[in-house]
């Protein structure tokens, strides 16, 4: 049953990941990336990591992707500005680094496939990774960092206002 959901989701992620790389327009790449993040969030839900899934959507698909879009808009890249993957392939350093990475990943995967030796999964309590557990830890074990983070955010907000305000009285 789990696999029935996993394979379509994983396939969806892989297709969109390829879309990020192969897309000629940077905006298209970014949108594919958002889709891939959503797919990953789905896989996290399958793995019982509900909280991580939510964070994945809020932080990556939401905040960070908005930042990406801003940067793309600011740079104002047009099609033909060396954004296609063929143009990138001519960059030797990039190709070599990516090649090395790919070989490393394939090596690791083949090691697992041929020896059929998976890491033994740790046994987790049922509630692991659910929103309730994380909330409880946050408000007991980590209540001090949680509150202090609000001071950090307040200071950052005040600072941003000070620097961005058009006129200081």
């Amino acid at each position: 049953m789990e696999l029935l959901i996993f394979y379509p989701l994983a396939g969806f992620c892989v297709v969109l990941a390829l879309g990020v790389v192969l897309n000629n327009s940077p905006v298209g790449s970014a949108i594919s990336l958002i889709g891939m993040m959503l797919g990953l969030a789905g896989i996290f839900v399958l793995q019982q990591a509900h909280f991580l899934a939510i964070l994945q959507i809020i932080i990556y698909a939401g905040a960070i992707m908005v930042l990406f879009m801003f940067v793309i808009m600011l740079l104002n890249l047009k099609e033909g500005d060396d954004t296609g993957w063929i143009a990138r392939e001519r960059n030797l350093l990039l190709s070599v680094l990516t090649g090395l990475l790919a070989v490393g990943i394939l090596y690791k995967i083949s090691g697992i496939l041929f020896t059929a030796e998976m890491d033994t999964p740790a046994i987790l309590p049922d509630s692991f990774g659910t929103v309730a557990t994380i909330g409880e830890t946050l408000f007991t074990d980590f209540v001090l960092p949680f509150e202090v983070a609000s001071i950090l955010l307040l200071a950052a907000m005040v600072g941003a206002v000070v620097l961005a305000k058009t006129k200081l009285d």
Binding site: P145, V148, I151, L152, A155, G159, V162
Partner: peptide, 17 residues
């Protein structure tokens, strides 16, 4: 270390501004 990190960030962000 979490608290140390938060402390350093509070200090740094105020200083940037």
């Amino acid at each position: 270390m979490i608290m140390i990190f938060l402390g350093i960030e509070i200090v740094s962000i105020c200083l940037y501004v």
